[in-house]
């Protein structure tokens, strides 16, 4: 249960950063927090009470004692995609800073609404 609460808190903090903060770097950090919270949520959906990791490491570990492997596989791919997309977003922020000379989204013309 603590995993659900932690994931919910991570998503809430990320949303707060995206909505309230005006600095683009902080907005990126918020996006990354939301991604981490979502990954934690997906993995904790697959948890089975008292289950072990889905690896046949010893002979006495049977398939019915294991947790769900599918969310873990999906999260494995999502983490790598998240890291590369964060790098791409950081590159965009650098380009924006070079062009406008500021990171404040209130001063960047094309991001104002």
């Amino acid at each position: 249960m603590i995993y659900y609460i932690g994931a919910f808190l991570l998503i809430a903090i990320g949303l707060y950063a995206i909505i309230i903060k005006k600095n683009l770097i902080k907005i990126l950090i918020g996006l990354d927090l939301i991604a981490s919270g979502t990954n934690l949520l997906i993995v904790s959906i697959g948890y089975v009470k008292g289950g072990t990791a889905p690896i046949f490491s010893k002979g006495n570990i049977l398939a019915k004692m294991m947790v769900d492997p599918v969310p873990q596989a999906l999260t494995l791919t999502a983490i790598v995609i998240g890291a590369s997309e964060l790098a791409l977003a950081a590159a965009f922020v650098v380009i924006l800073y070079r062009h406008y000379g500021t990171l404040d989204i209130k001063k960047i013309r094309s991001l104002k609404w």
């Binding site: 697959g46 889905p54 690896i55 046949f56 019915k64 492997p69 873990q72």
Partner: peptide, 21 residues
């Protein structure tokens, strides 16, 4: 688990990998 059960049951016979993930 819905599809995960199938993976856990058939993993050793079909792929031979110890790590189901």
């Amino acid at each position: 688990m819905a599809v995960g059960k199938y993976y856990l049951k058939n993993d050793i016979n079909q792929t031979g990998a110890a790590n189901v993930v």
